[in-house]
């Protein structure tokens, strides 16, 4: 389903916070804060995740000079069971809160909901975003951190990062969201949790092609189409899928992936980064700054998410995936 926002809600401000390992990220210089201790000086990883969300939201408020009482809605999610870090952070933020789970696509799905509320006139200022914490998620989805298992070249590294935006009424000085596509759940029967790029690529393909079709656009109408965390191999698959359906080489170069680029060419991160904080921290720092500086005029942000759990994997189920897209323009 493609939604066109007549009032073009704007991204008033954004904040990205990352963990110590994310110093190695190529987007490092765009982050607002990088912490020394990955637990944010808390006792547990999960509490560290809570702190990370709170810090990102605080930076967001500081940038705009707003008070937390000015915030109407807080819309966010993460990957920990029942999204407790976000729920607990919402306790401090004290705005009306809806927890959203679209796995790693939450960064965009939360912005879509915030835009709808703004469009409706219900929200003056809404915070939307997502976070992920490597240690908290790895132990839940895979193995204990210190367990010596061999990951294949297709595996991705869950980032410790958070990205949040403040969505408000249209303001020509800021990037605005003109349209969005809410993704369907796509399942091509992929089962390997160490090869999420292949599972998610069809979802990204579906969402992007439907968005372009309904908006009567072409790939080259965009300066950038950035997927969330397909990783190096997933991005290749996506490009190939578009190439097979008639996209030129030049058009394929418009496609980029936050996860594939996040850690640069460092081979120890295998196929690149993943996690809901991956797309959130890149979109809401690097991409928005490029829009503001005028380098990009129109971008499509397509956050991809795999909707499986360790339980469904063990029960032999395949990995259903989704992708949500927002079309962001700068006047």
């Amino acid at each position: 389903m493609v939604i066109v926002f007549g009032q073009k809600p704007s991204i008033i401000a954004s904040a990205a916070v990352a963990g110590p390992l994310e110093r190695k990220s190529v987007f490092y210089s765009y982050f607002d804060s990088v912490v020394e201790d990955e637990r944010w000086n808390q006792a547990t990883n999960e509490q560290g995740n809570v702190k990370m969300i709170q810090e990102a939201c605080q930076i967001l408020l500081n940038k705009t000079g707003l008070n937390r009482l000015d915030i109407d809605f807080f819309l966010a999610g993460d990957l920990v069971n029942q999204m407790t870090p976000t729920n607990f952070a919402a306790r401090e933020i004290a705005a009306s809160f809806i927890g959203l789970f679209s796995a790693c696509a939450t960064s965009v799905s939360s912005v879509i909901v915030a835009c709808l509320l703004t469009e409706l006139g219900a929200s003056q200022y809404a915070i939307a975003g997502a976070s992920s914490h490597h240690n908290a998620i790895e132990r839940q989805f895979r193995y204990p951190i210190y367990y010596g298992s061999q990951k294949p070249a297709t595996a991705q590294w869950t980032v410790t990062a958070a990205g949040f935006t403040l969505i408000g009424k249209h303001n020509p000085k800021n990037p605005s969201i003109v349209a969005a596509t809410v993704g369907k759940v796509i399942d091509y029967g992929q089962k390997d949790p160490f090869h999420m790029g292949a599972a998610m690529a069809p979802a990204a393909y579906d969402t992007i092609s439907r968005h372009l079709e309904k908006r009567k656009q072409q790939i080259k109408d965009y300066d950038l189409i950035m997927t969330g965390d397909l990783g190096k191999i997933g991005l290749q698959i996506l490009k190939k899928m578009f190439a097979e359906t008639g996209a030129t080489r030049e058009e394929c170069n418009i496609f980029r992936d936050a996860g594939a680029e996040f850690y640069g060419e460092d081979p120890s991160f295998l196929a690149g980064a993943s996690g809901s904080g991956c797309s959130a921290s890149v979109y809401f720092s690097y991409v928005l700054q490029q829009l503001k500086s005028g380098r990009f005029k129109r971008v499509l942000l397509v956050a991809t998410g795999s909707l499986h759990s360790p339980l469904t994997f063990q029960q032999g189920e395949s990995i259903p995936c989704t992708a949500h897209a927002i079309e962001v323009t700068m006047e």
Binding site: G19, L21, K24, E38, H134, N135, E138, R139, P144, I145, Y146, W157, T160, D266, S268, F269
Partner: peptide, 9 residues
């Protein structure tokens, strides 16, 4: 004795 930390290979 130990606390797990996210390290890269």
């Amino acid at each position: 004795l130990f606390k797990s930390k996210g390290k890269v290979n």
